[in-house]
């Protein structure tokens, strides 16, 4: 393994510039709470991978969405496993994220010069919530439909522009096939790619700024 990697690295030169990051000294007294960000990243990786697998069989159309979910669950080899992993990792990701945010907050690691990384973190967290919300519609069953009906109707309460925001989110007056396709697009293209960019910034800043010495 090491030999193959070294051969590739001779062309790519990724190892040396990251040496300062991978081989750096960490402050003393770190606890497992400092692993929560890494744990969240692991959940994100699993979500990305299982999600790409699910997209092989899922059909984002009014007519076929629900039956394609049933097919994944009952017919596709290991479909139940991949679907279950996707669902559970989503829940676990949110739990890790809250824990990670609390850790950063309590250790006051959000203070300058790391304020931008806190901001990037918050945007990532909102993206995760949005992923959960858009993903919930995709099974296209009663629970999914009414959750989205209720969730999107909240936009309606924004003063003045609320109604238009709701139309924008739904792609029309009601939650229907148009909503399903736009949620699908957001869930599988826009958010995962956006989060990839956000996490790159997040890690790049950690690489530059290091981990804050525990209090």
């Amino acid at each position: 393994m090491g030999k193959i990697f070294d051969w590739i690295d001779a062309k790519f030169h990724v190892k040396a510039p990251h040496g300062g990051f991978l081989q750096r000294r960490l402050p003393e007294g770190l606890s497992y709470a400092y692993c929560l960000g890494g744990a969240a990243f692991t959940a994100y990786t699993i979500l990305l991978f299982t999600g790409m697998l699910l997209s092989i069989y899922y059909v984002p159309s009014e007519h076929d969405a629900y039956s394609s979910i049933l097919r994944i669950q009952h017919e596709v080899h290991l479909g139940w496993l991949i679907r279950g992993m996707h669902k559970w990792s989503a829940t676990i990701l949110i739990i890790f994220l809250i824990g990670h945010t609390l850790r950063v907050f309590i250790s006051r690691a959000y203070r300058p010069p790391k304020e931008l990384n806190w901001v990037v973190g918050v945007i990532t967290m909102v993206s995760c919530f949005a992923s959960g919300f858009t993903g919930y519609l995709l099974p296209w069953d009663q629970k999914a439909y009414w959750a989205t009906e209720v969730g999107t109707s909240m936009a309606h309460t924004i003063p003045a522009i609320g109604t238009y925001v709701m139309y924008f989110v739904r792609g029309g007056i009601d939650v229907d096939g148009t909503t399903l396709i736009r949620f699908y697009s957001i869930h599988v293209h826009w958010l995962p790619l956006g989060m990839l960019a956000l996490l790159w910034m997040h890690f790049h800043m950690i690489k530059r700024q290091g981990i804050k010495r525990p209090l």
């Binding site: 393994m1 092989i56 017919e75 080899h77």
Partner: peptide
């Protein structure tokens, strides 16, 4: 750590191949 990574990625690749192979 390298061993665990290789093991996990192999497992993931095998699972993915089984999943993607048509059931019917």
């Amino acid at each position: 750590v390298q061993g665990i990574l290789v093991l996990l990625s192999t497992l993931a690749a095998v699972t993915a191949a089984i999943f993607a192979y048509p059931a019917r």
